[in-house]
């Protein structure tokens, strides 16, 4: 081996040391497990079968679960995008004071100073039947009966997701917006553009890479989650992942593995659709 290629291999070693044991091997294990049979007691019989995939793909439940998960994903994506974009826009274009912008940015991360479970539990006194929102609405006379839909429902799931994931939209969009030259905006105004024109023709197209990155974060996190759905829906809704979590619970590893592979494939399709719309690599290196 020439000296040059030896050095090249040395450069990629740290990456390989992370990727191989923590990404490649687990994926392979799951792939292998998905074509094996179970002995019913947690053991795997070494064989090759596609029965697990057939089972997953022909089950009506799979489609219901994907429908539910995609619904949560779409709603969460929409709300995090709108809120995240507006927050980033405000921070970049309206907060003139750098220090203030950084403090406001840090405030956005406050929810992350505590664990997911605590955050989840905190919704109960807020959204519960006798929670703050309901008592406020009752107190002002807007409603007569407490709204039950607020907690342990699809609404609650989406609220929890949006609360948890908006920051993943804010950060990349903030990042791409901050790189917009303010003079470009001024040049647009100079040409007679209205605020709406500037937003539509300049800021949104130039924040595309941030929007795409944030969307990838949000979509992949929501589609891979089961905890929020489980807690916030009170068991009323399920997601794709919660289904194979249950499979694992009853030692049905091959079925769970097949579902996991299917989810991975679907996620890859979704992400490549996003990447097809926005060439992130080109946008970032520009």
């Amino acid at each position: 081996m020439s000296r040059q290629s030896w050095v090249a291999w040395l450069y990629v070693t740290p990456l390989m040391l992370v990727l191989v044991p923590f990404f490649l091997i687990p994926i392979l294990v799951v792939l292998v497990a998905s074509v094996l049979e179970t002995d019913g007691f947690g053991g795997l019989i070494p064989t090759f079968t596609l029965a697990n995939y057939v089972g997953v793909l022909t089950s009506a439940q799979t489609f219901h679960l994907y429908a539910a998960t995609l619904k949560f994903t779409a709603l969460t994506w929409f709300f995090t995008l709108v809120i995240g974009f507006l927050v980033a826009y405000f921070l970049v274009f309206h907060v003139k004071n750098q220090l203030l912008a950084i403090s406001l940015f840090l405030i956005c991360t406050v929810p992350f100073w505590t664990s997911n479970i605590i955050r989840m539990i905190s919704w109960i006194p807020l959204l519960g039947k006798e929670g703050l929102v309901n008592s406020a609405l009752l107190g002002t006379g807007i409603i007569r009966e407490p709204l039950e839909v607020l907690l342990y429902s699809s609404v609650a799931v989406v609220i929890a997701y949006v609360h948890q994931l908006t920051i993943f939209m804010v950060v990349p969009i903030f990042n791409s917006m901050a790189r917009i030259d303010k003079r470009v905006v001024e040049a647009a105004l100079d040409s007679g553009a209205s605020r709406l024109d500037v937003m539509r023709l300049i800021i949104i197209p130039m924040s595309k890479s941030g929007i795409a990155l944030g969307s990838i974060f949000v979509v992949s996190i929501v589609m891979g989650d089961f905890f929020v759905v489980k807690v916030m829906s009170g068991g009323g809704s399920a997601s794709v992942v919660s289904a194979f979590y249950e499979n694992v619970g009853v030692l049905q590893y091959p079925i769970a593995a097949a579902s996991a592979v299917l989810l991975t494939v679907i996620l890859i399709v979704v992400i490549s659709l996003i990447l097809r719309a926005v060439d992130i690599r080109r946008e970032i290196t520009q």
Binding site: A187, D190, G192
Partner: peptide, 16 residues
């Protein structure tokens, strides 16, 4: 700027 009927060419051009 539009009502003034002026146009500006910015430093380092600020092209879109």
């Amino acid at each position: 700027p539009v009502e003034r009927r002026t146009a500006m060419m910015f430093q380092s051009y600020a092209l879109f």
